[in-house]
């Protein structure tokens, strides 16, 4: 059976201030996988998804989503940025933030209406935050804020989800909520790409993994390639994990 690829990245090279961050990355992400991107700090994990999403312009290479350019396929893609990337003291409520997920499908100028509110409320319910919908976002805990961000992406109703460190500094409840939602998304045939740095949980949470350290080290099913050899290649030191399969 031929594999259908949700995302393909060809020869992607990115440099910040002409300092290389990603070099000649070729990557194909099959449809329907739950993939972790792992690598040491500064390996370019966030940069990779940011350049797939068009936030950063690469100096070479191309990205396609289901065979077409990102610009044409925007509505198929949802994004959960790092929690620390925004000012949580911004005067707005959880519901308002989640509604932002529907702005892309609305396009310019049009205002969100009942349908958008409904979508936002449903997304909030999925992440267990419906009770907090009118809460100012600074009054939420770190985990709750992360769940609001996830709900915003769910409200986009996309086919491919990119998430930047969604498990960073969250409580146990949030971690379980998030991973259950990720698994549900996979069951529904969606593709999920997560920048992740807790190596211990990779085999438990994900079925696909990409090792990245400026260059792509390896990509494939967790069962086949998540081993000490690849970890050592990625992290540079002699790496041993107690992988609990």
């Amino acid at each position: 059976m031929e594999i259908k690829y949700a995302v393909t990245v060809d020869d992607l090279t990115v440099a910040y201030n002409y300092k290389p961050v990603l070099w000649d990355i070729d990557l194909a992400i099959p449809e329907g996988v739950l993939m972790a991107i792992v690598g040491p700090n500064g390996a370019g994990k966030s940069t990779l998804i940011k350049s797939i999403l068009g936030i950063i312009n690469p100096i070479a290479g191309s990205v396609s989503i289901y065979g077409k350019s990102y610009d044409k396929q925007r509505k198929l893609v949802a994004y959960v940025p790092q929690k620390g990337s925004v000012d949580w003291d911004f005067p707005t409520t959880a519901l308002d933030v989640v509604k932002m997920g529907t702005y892309g499908s609305l396009g310019w100028v049009k205002r969100p209406g009942k349908a958008q509110k409904k979508a936002a409320l449903e997304a909030l319910e999925k992440v267990g935050m419906l009770a907090f919908k009118n809460r100012q976002i600074s009054q939420l805990s770190g985990g709750q804020q992360q769940r609001v961000f996830l709900a915003r992406a769910l409200a986009q109703n996309a086919s491919i989800y990119f998430m930047d460190e969604p498990f960073q500094g969250v409580d146990a409840t949030t971690e379980i909520t998030i991973i259950n939602i990720l698994k549900e998304l996979r069951k529904a045939g969606k593709t999920v790409v997560v920048v992740h740095h807790d190596l211990q949980t990779v085999p438990e949470y994900f079925d696909w993994v990409t090792f990245l350290n400026v260059k792509k080290i390896a990509t494939g099913p967790v069962k086949e390639i998540f081993n000490d050899d690849n970890l050592t290649k990625t992290y540079g030191i002699n790496y041993k994990v107690s992988v609990q399969q």
């Binding site: 020869d11 090279t13 440099a15 002409y18 290389p20 070099w23 000649d24 070729d26 100096i59 070479a60």
Partner: peptide
């Protein structure tokens, strides 16, 4: 200059890969 360097390296790296 650096942009050129990076581009050249990208190109060579690609050939190497």
């Amino acid at each position: 200059q650096q942009q050129k360097e990076v581009q050249l390296l990208t190109f060579l790296l690609h050939l190497n890969n």
